[in-house]
C-alpha cells in the first residue's frame, strides 16, 4: 500500500513571492509526522494544498493512492486549520452535524457520533446551547470534535497546539497518540520544537518554502552529527562565557542563560570542557553528553533570525502550550 500522503514537487506562488517551491514529502501510514518550520515557511500553504484548498501551480498531491487532494477524500480526513472558528449563532450539536455532513457523513450517524463525543469530553449539557455561549476552552473542544468525529484515517492539524489551554493541549496530545496506536496517520505542523520532539516519528523541516531535511527523528539527529553537551548552571557561571567562546573547544552554542547547548569542536573532548568549566569557578547543575536537540538542529538549519521568531512563539498568534 502506498503512503497515505504523497506530495510530489509542489510549487505555489502568490502575488510577488513563492510560498512553496518544489516540495516533496511522503507520510507513511500509522505514524505521527511533523512538518516543522519558522513562521512564513510555507507550512500552512503546504497543508492547504494537501487539503485541496489551494491548487498547486505545479506538482501533484496524492492521498490514499489517488490523485486529488483532501476534498475528494474528506470523509477519511480530519482537518484542523490554524485559524479556527465555528458558527457562533448555531447550536453546538447542529454545528457538529453540519460539519460532518459536509464531509459526506450521513445525518443520522453524524448526530449519534456527535452526541457520543460531546459526552466523552464533558459537553453533553451544552449541546443545545449556542456556540457563542461556550467558553473559549469549550469551543476548542467542539472544534476538535469536529475534526475527529467521523473517525478519519488521516488527521491533518495545522499548528494544533497554538492557543490551546493546558487541559485541551493534553486532550489533544492524548488523542494524537491514541490515533497512532490505532494505526491511523497524523500529520501536523508546528513551529514549537518541543512538541515535535516529543510526538513525531518522522519529520520534515522547511524554510522559505523549501525542504531542508526530512526523515525519522533518529535520522535527522544522526545526519546532524557532532558531539553535544548540555550545560546547566547553579548560580555562579564563573568564566564560562570565555570557555564557550573558545573555538578550539566549542564549535557552536545555543545559550539560554542558565542553560546552554554546546556543539563541540572537532577533536575536542567533553572532559576538557568540563575541566575548564570547573576551573573557571562555574557551579554546574548539569553536564550531559547528548544528541542534539531538535531545536538546535532547527536553529542551525534555518538560521538565527528565524530562531528568534520560533523561540518566542512567533507572530502566528500562537503561544506555547
Amino acid at each position: 500500500m502506498a503512503d497515505p500522503v504523497i506530495v510530489d514537487r509542489v510549487t505555489k506562488r502568490f502575488a510577488g513571492h513563492t510560498a512553496v517551491e518544489a516540495l516533496s514529502l511522503s507520510v507513511p501510514s500509522g505514524i505521527i509526522y511533523g512538518l516543522l518550520g519558522p513562521n512564513g515557511a510555507g507550512k500552512t500553504t503546504t497543508l492547504r494544498m494537501i487539503m485541496d484548498i489551494y491548487e498547486p501551480d505545479s506538482g501533484t498531491v496524492r492521498l490514499f493512492d489517488q490523485v486529488g487532494g483532501g476534498r475528494t477524500n474528506s470523509a477519511r480526513i480530519g482537518y484542523l486549520p490554524e485559524e479556527r472558528g465555528l458558527y457562533p449563532r448555531m447550536r453546538v450539536l447542529d454545528v457538529l452535524v453540519f460539519l460532518a455532513e459536509a464531509k459526506g457523513v450521513s445525518r443520522r450517524s453524524a448526530r449519534a457520533k456527535a452526541i457520543e463525543w460531546l459526552e466523552r469530553l464533558g459537553l453533553s449539557d451544552w449541546r443545545m446551547r449556542k456556540v457563542s455561549d461556550l467558553s473559549k476552552g469549550m469551543q476548542q473542544k467542539v472544534q476538535f470534535i469536529s475534526t475527529v468525529l467521523h473517525d478519519p484515517d488521516l488527521v491533518i492539524l495545522d499548528e494544533p497546539f497554538s492557543g490551546l489551554d493546558p487541559v485541551n493541549s493534553q486532550v489533544l496530545r492524548d488523542t494524537v497518540v491514541d490515533y497512532r496506536r490505532r494505526g491511523k496517520t497524523v500529520l501536523f505542523s508546528t513551529h514549537i520544537m518541543e512538541h515535535a520532539e516529543k510526538l513525531c516519528d518522522r519529520l520534515c523541516i522547511i524554510a522559505r518554502g523549501k525542504k531542508l531535511i526530512d526523515g525519522t527523528l533518529a535520522e535527522v539527529k544522526g545526519t546532524h552529527g557532532g558531539k553535544h553537551v548540555i550545560v546547566a548552571f547553579d548560580g555562579n557561571q564563573g568564566n564560562a562565557r570565555q570557555i564557550f567562546a573558545d573555538r578550539r573547544l566549542v564549535a557552536k552554542i545555543q545559550d539560554f542563560g542558565q542553560q546552554a547547548e554546546l556543539e563541540l569542536a572537532p577533536g575536542a573532548d567533553a572532559q576538557e570542557v568540563l575541566k575548564a568549566l570547573v576551573d573557571s569557578g562555574a557551579r554546574l547543575a548539569r553536564f550531559e553528553l547528548a544528541s542534539p536537540s531538535l531545536h538546535k538542529i532547527f536553529v542551525d538549519l534555518v538560521g538565527p533570525e528565524a530562531a528568534t521568531a520560533a523561540a518566542t512563539g512567533g507572530g502566528n498568534g500562537g503561544s506555547r502550550a
Binding site: 483532501g70 476534498r71 474528506s74 485559524e83 472558528g85 458558527y87 457562533p88 460539519l99 459536509a102 459526506g104
Partner: peptide, 17 residues
C-alpha cells in the same frame, strides 16, 4: 461574511468545493 470572519470557511471548503 460570517463564515469568512469566523474562519469556519476553511474547514468547510476542505470538504465542500
Amino acid at each position: 461574511l460570517e463564515e469568512k470572519t469566523t474562519r469556519i470557511v476553511e474547514v468547510v471548503v476542505s470538504s465542500v468545493r
